[in-house]
């Protein structure tokens, strides 16, 4: 369908670019795919970094100028082959751990990840024990 309409368009406008377009299509598509992938990686990293001039939003979400510039920097560092962790480490070396919107799961910070899980598990245990007791026949209920 798309091919047909493209051909029609070419025929109508009389452009003889169909051949050339076909030839260059593959590298362009590759380039676009690479751009999309880079953009996705940039968004992922930028979403983890806190905008220094805003309130609690990431540089991905913030419309502030500095946030945009930091996003550009993230993209550039990723393009030059840095890993997401290295990019984050760069920003931590400049702004401290403060810039990570998600605390590193190491040392004391583990608490913030472990405690909610423990609450769920502990609560489940309490419910199971309580239900065992509550579902016993009444005559055994003397506690």
């Amino acid at each position: 369908m798309l091919v047909v309409s493209a051909a029609l368009l070419a025929a109508i406008t009389g452009r003889a670019g169909a051949q050339a377009a076909g030839a260059s299509a593959a590298p362009v598509a590759q380039q676009a795919a690479a751009d999309t992938a880079l953009e996705a990686r940039t968004n992922a990293v930028a979403g983890q970094l806190r905008c220094p001039v805003c309130q609690g939003v990431s540089i991905q979400d913030s419309p502030a100028e500095l946030a945009q510039q930091m996003r550009d920097l993230v993209r550039e560092q990723l393009r030059t082959g840095k890993s997401p962790d290295e990019v984050k480490a760069y920003f931590v070396s400049k702004y401290g751990e403060w810039i990570l919107l998600q605390p590193r799961a190491s040392g004391f910070n583990i608490l913030i990840y472990a405690l909610p899980v423990l609450v769920v598990l502990g609560g489940l245990a309490v419910i199971v024990v309580a239900m065992r007791r509550w579902t016993k026949p009444p005559e055994n209920l003397s506690i």
Binding site: R50, E97, I99, L101, P103, F108, N109
Partner: peptide, 23 residues
Amino acid sequence: IGTLFPLIAEAIRGVKVSVGAPF
């Protein structure tokens, strides 16, 4: 705990941390 954690972490570790949307 996510809301209070920056305060707790600073009191105990002396380091400012952020807890935001990704967490």
